[in-house]
Amino acid sequence: MSEPANALEISGLRAGYDASDVLLGIQMHVGASERVGLFGPNGHGKTTLLNTISRVIRPRAGDVRFMGEPISGLPPQKIVERGLIHVPQANRLFPDMQVLETLELAAFTPRARSDLKQNLDYVLALFPRLAERRSQQCKTLSGGERQMLSIGVGLMCAPRMLMLDEPTLGLSPKLKDELADAIAGISSRGIPLLLVEQDIAFILSLVDRMYLVDHGEISREINRGGEVDHQEIMDMYFGSEGAS
């Protein structure tokens, strides 16, 4: 069986809400077992891009291929079944369910269910805090614990690729380090990663390559080792176009 070169390939992807387009033709790829970052100011389409890939919202045009096969016409549960797992931003999960119950439920597709035992052991070893809180309801978890559970839920889906949307949003530096270690551990198992982050140091410590998302388009691609142009990032944040 020949392994396709890229885990994820996206071309000409357009999507949006109601009358307005948010994504204006995204072109990008994630290689097999590659770690790729998405960076850019809020409101420029990073979350919309992940939502469109996982088909929470419908693409208006363009093509998404996962492991070489087109998936942009599939419903979300089929995409999960194939192993492309989206861990959404600030997921409050299922407030009245217990931690362990949530993790077991997350192995919902037949493929994930057959790996339930070993994935559960892995998640509880990766996040011992979740093991301690196993019979607590999701709504009683702290922000950091909830983020760990979100990632744990993603892992229970038996991912062949993970997309994480701002996993450290609102967390303390100490927790950020903990999560960075966990995420590095996950990707060291050969799972390709697409990571959305606002924290430039955090994202650079974890990825091989990075795209800058700007006004619904990929404005730049930065390879690891390549010089990060801080001025350009500042410009993106503060909109000081022409001031440089």
């Binding site: 979300p76 549960q77 999960v80 079944e81 299922f94 009245d96 369910m97 919902f108």
Partner: peptide, 11 residues
């Protein structure tokens, strides 16, 4: 409790 999160685990 959360239809979007349910979709994303393959329900």
């Amino acid at each position: 409790q959360n239809p979007d999160a349910a979709r994303l685990i393959g329900i």
